[in-house]
């Protein structure tokens, strides 16, 4: 989780990733940021993210992102 927070902070600083649960709904993460995060997640955790995974529910909070990473790691 800490590594994920570092990735988020690096790509889009100045957001409260620990508490915010509306990263997509409030426009904090745009499509460029989402794809940058996906690119880093693929490198850092060896997961493969498909277009079907790119839904607000998976990107609205750091927790949701982490849950997606864990699920994709299990499925791999």
């Amino acid at each position: 989780m800490e590594q994920l927070l570092e990735i988020l902070e690096d790509i889009q600083p100045d957001a409260d990733y620990e508490n915010c649960e509306t990263l997509i709904d409030d426009g904090i993460l745009d499509s460029f940021a989402i794809l940058s995060i996906v690119s880093e997640l693929e490198d850092a955790f060896g997961v493969s993210v498909t277009p079907a995974e790119i839904v607000p529910e998976n990107f609205n909070s750091a927790k949701a992102l982490w849950a997606m990473v864990c699920r994709l790691k299990e499925e791999a």
Partner: peptide
């Protein structure tokens, strides 16, 4: 975004 941008990017 959903049907071209994400699929092409990924």
């Amino acid at each position: 975004k959903d049907y071209v941008f994400y699929p092409v990017s990924l």
